[in-house]
Design a protein around this nucleic acid. Structure first.
Length: 236
DNA sequence: GCGACAG
DNA sequence: ATCTTGTCGC
C-alpha cells in the first residue's frame, strides 16, 4: 500500500477472546466525525469465498465521484484463517481486504465497506477496522442488522430512522429504494453519520445497493460478465 | 437457560 | 457467504 504510509497492523492469529479485547481497544481510535474535503474517488470493498470457503477473495472497486465511473479495481485471494462468527467478521475478512487495497493504483478518498461500522456490539465492525488500520475515511454499509433497535421504517425511498443500542445512536436505517429491505449505515472512521448517509445516497442509482458496493460485490464473487465489463472499461 | 446473530 | 430455477409481485 504505497499510498498508505502508516498501516497500523497487528497480529491476526488471535483467540476469540483476544480478538474481542482488541476490538474494544481499537474502538477508541475510531474518529466519529469529519466532513470530508473534496471527494474524488470512492471505493467499494467486498469479500467472497472460493474452494468451499478455504480461500477468501476480496475486491475493491474505485469509482469517480460524483460521476461513478469505474476507474480502477483490484482483487486478492488469501487462505481463510477464521470462520464466520457474529461480531468477529473483520478478523475473517480484513487480511484479504488489505491485500486487495495494496494492489490499487488510485488511492480512494472514502471507503464503503460491506458490513457494520460502529453499529457493532463493541462499536468496531469491519468498516472501523479497515478505517483505523489504513487511516482512510470509511463507512459501514450493511444489508442487515447486527445489533440495535430502530423504529418501523416507511416503505418509501429516502425513509430514514435512527439505530440505537444501549442508549447510544449507532447508525441509520435507510430505505435506498421503495419497498426494498433497508440499508444499515454507520460510521466506519473519520466521518460523521450524516455525512456517511449523504455519500451513500449520492452513490445510489436504480438499485438497492450503492454503485461502489455493487461493483465490489460483482468482482468479489468473480462474476464473469462483471469482470469482463470492468476490464473493457479499463482497457485491460 | 433462551434467543439473536454483519458476511 | 454459499448451494440453486423458476416464479410471484411492485
Amino acid at each position: 500500500m504505497g499510498w498508505v504510509p502508516d498501516l497500523n497492523l497487528h497480529r491476526w492469529d488471535l483467540s476469540y477472546a483476544e480478538a474481542r479485547a482488541l476490538q474494544t481497544t481499537l474502538a477508541r481510535q475510531v474518529i466519529q466525525h469529519g466532513d470530508l474535503p473534496e471527494i474524488r474517488y470512492v471505493a467499494g470493498v467486498d469479500v467472497g469465498f472460493e474452494e468451499k470457503g478455504s480461500v477468501t477473495r476480496a475486491a475493491v472497486a474505485v469509482l469517480a465521484f460524483p460521476g461513478l465511473e469505474l476507474l480502477d479495481y483490484a482483487v486478492a485471494k488469501v487462505p481463510t484463517q477464521m470462520p464466520y462468527i457474529p461480531g468477529l467478521l473483520s478478523f475473517r475478512e480484513c487480511p484479504a481486504i488489505l491485500a486487495a487495497l495494496s494492489r490499487l493504483t488510485v488511492q480512494p478518498d472514502l471507503l464503503f465497506c460491506d458490513g457494520q461500522g460502529i453499529a457493532h456490539p463493541r462499536r468496531f465492525g469491519v468498516a472501523c477496522h479497515i478505517g483505523v488500520l489504513t487511516g482512510l475515511p470509511a463507512i459501514g454499509v450493511a444489508k442487515s442488522r447486527l445489533c440495535g433497535k430502530s423504529a418501523v421504517l416507511p416503505e418509501q425511498k429516502g425513509a430514514r430512522a435512527e439505530l440505537w443500542d444501549n442508549n447510544e445512536l449507532i447508525g441509520n436505517v435507510v430505505r435506498s429504494r421503495t419497498a426494498v429491505r433497508p440499508l444499515y449505515i454507520s460510521i466506519g472512521h473519520r466521518i460523521s453519520l450524516n455525512t456517511a448517509v449523504h455519500y451513500v445516497e449520492a452513490c445510489l442509482t436504480r438499485y438497492r445497493l450503492p454503485e461502489t458496493t455493487r461493483w465490489a460485490d460483482a468482482l468479489a464473487s468473480n462474476r464473469g460478465q462483471a469482470v469482463a465489463r470492468a476490464n473493457q472499461i479499463l482497457g485491460r
